[in-house]
Structure formats: structure tokens, C-alpha cells
Design a protein around this nucleic acid. Structure first.
Lengths: 155, 155
DNA sequence: ATCCGATAGTTGACCTGTCATCCATCCCTT
DNA sequence: AAGGGATGGATGACAGGTCAACTATCGGAT
């Protein structure tokens, strides 16, 4: 791709390349750490955090989907696997015959209570500690800019 | 996680949260775009770029692994799949009985020649165009900082 | 009352990546 | 020359995600 200067400037290409290398390494390493230390994946963690924050640890399936911004099929698979492991349970919804609730179980609460400190610690070690406060702000700012842009731009 | 202010400051948490949302959306969208437009995934693309840049489009398996910084088992699977699709071929290595070469095929060259412009265009639309030149520099800088830090920090 | 589009959620096939393990060859030491 | 650790690479089982279809219910218009 170095041989295609007409498409991306040196600067643009460098930014992209560094960014993509960084995110692969950072995310990869973090998820392996989580897997190893807590047997809770990032996906498990995200779901359990949402449920923990919800009243009675219970959320409508679709609300859960919206909260973590996944596709519903992904969530459906995820919930099935987590149910099998006893981390969450499904409940029927009286109001809406199509609906379902997802509830965190005691096992699930235990799991996230144990995982959370390690997870936060990993984020601190790998990410937060790499950067100065100014750089942290800069990450937040740039991330928001990209997110905004993604919402405006069509596929 | 809002309920654990002692672990990550507001600022630190905000930066992490925005970053991770952004990278999920950006990477997800880019890879779906690539899949749809060119039937070449990001992984396929990375491998073909490396091979294209190599003399005779040929690289030792392990050199390829190092070039893209993957695990070797990932590369092994990837090469098998790409071989099946005719994008690359394996060749024996005379010098080293254990060794193998991976070579890009004419089909592979065609594929990347067709995919490259679309890929670059997608990177431009989703990423480059979201940011000012200063912000691009900032991304590159922060990414490097994190990468350096990752190398220093043990698991 | 019924029809119909929208919403809720599931499922199965398929692709990608990880981990652990395995085998063969290489090369260094004795 | 013979071991033995390191290196090169393949493989199989598995978890995770995407896509496309499918089912079932809801709710508003007729």
C-alpha cells in the first residue's frame, strides 16, 4: 500500500496503520487477559454490566440489545450460551407474547463481582497508564468525532 | 461500572468507553463493507498486501506471520482457506525441510488489485474524512504511545 | 373482524480466531 | 554420532460473530 500514494497521503496512511495495529493488539490482549483471569469474556462482561445496572437485574431482550448496541442475533446466541453456563436466565414476558426478559442469576452476580476489579485493572494497566490526561482527553475526543461521523455516513 | 468511581476516574472511564465503542463500530463496519464489496476480508487483504510487496510474491510462512504480527496458527488456517480459494499457493522449501513458502497466485493478484481501491476508499470515507489533519496526527501519536506501552507492560 | 406491516426473538449454516497439542526437522552440545 | 531443545508449521476442538431466513405476536387501518 506504500505504492499507492495517490489514494491516501503519507499522513493519512500512517494514522490509519498505527491505529489499526494498536486496536488489534490492545483489544486482543485485553480479551485474552479477561478470558484467562476471570473466564468472563468481554461480551459476557458487557451483558452482565447492563443487567447489573438494571432494576432487579432484569431487562427486556431488545433493551439489552440496544444498550450494548449489538445485533439481536448476536445477543440471542450470547444469551443462550450464558444461560447454559448459569450466568443469566430467561423469563417470559406477560405484557408481550413475543417478548422475553433476561435476568442475571446469583452465579452471574458472583462472576461479575469477581471479574470487575480484574477487568478494570487490566484496562488501567494496558490503556490508561499508557497515556497522559491530555492524551486521554484526546482519545475521547477523536473517538466521539469518529462515532459522529459514522452516524452521518451511509454504507 | 458507573458505580465504581474509585477504580477509574470519570475522565479515564469516559476515554475508555468512547474508544471501545468507536473501535467496535468502525472496525465492524469496515469489515462488513470489505466483505460485501470485494469478497476479500481484512485478513485476506493483509496477507495479500504482504505477499504483493515481497519479491516474486513469495514469502516464508514464518516471515509472513511476523510481517502481519499474527499467531502462526491463525496464519496457518488463513493460508489453508486462501489456498482453497486459489488466492495463494504453498510451495516447498528446499533449504529447510520444515519450511514452506506462500506465494500469491495470479488470481490473488487480480483480487487484491480489484479490492484495493475500494478498501482505501472505505478507509477514507469512514476514518480519514471524520478527522482534521491535526486529529489524524493525534490518532497516530496516541496509537504509538499505546503500542510502546504494550511492549513494556507484562501480561 | 381481519389483514398486514412492523416488531421480538430464534435458529442454522458458515467463517474467523484461539488454544492446546502434535509432528518433523534443524542445529547445538557433548 | 547421538541427544535434545528450539523452531517451523499443521491440526482439531471450540467459542464467538454474521447473515439470512423463519416464527410468532402486536397493533393499527380498513
Amino acid at each position: 500500500m506504500n505504492s499507492m500514494p495517490q489514494w491516501l497521503s503519507q499522513q493519512e496512511y500512517a494514522a490509519w496503520r498505527e491505529f489499526i495495529r494498536m486496536e488489534e493488539k490492545l483489544v486482543g490482549r485485553l480479551s485474552r487477559l479477561m478470558q484467562a483471569e476471570s473466564s468472563l469474556s468481554g461480551a459476557d462482561y458487557a451483558v452482565l454490566v447492563e443487567l447489573t445496572d438494571a432494576p432487579e437485574g432484569r431487562l427486556r431482550f431488545m433493551d439489552l440489545v440496544k444498550a450494548v448496541e449489538w445485533e439481536k442475533s448476536r445477543m440471542s446466541h450470547q444469551v443462550r450460551r450464558m444461560t447454559k453456563r448459569g450466568l443469566v436466565a430467561r423469563e417470559e414476558c406477560v405484557d408481550d407474547g413475543r417478548g422475553a426478559f433476561v435476568v442475571i442469576t446469583p452465579t452471574g452476580r458472583e462472576a461479575i463481582a469477581e471479574a470487575a476489579p480484574r477487568h478494570v485493572e487490566a484496562v488501567r494497566r494496558l490503556f490508561v497508564e499508557a497515556l497522559t490526561p491530555e492524551e486521554l482527553d484526546s482519545v475521547a475526543h477523536v473517538s466521539r468525532r469518529i462515532l459522529e461521523h459514522l452516524e452521518k455516513v451511509p454504507d
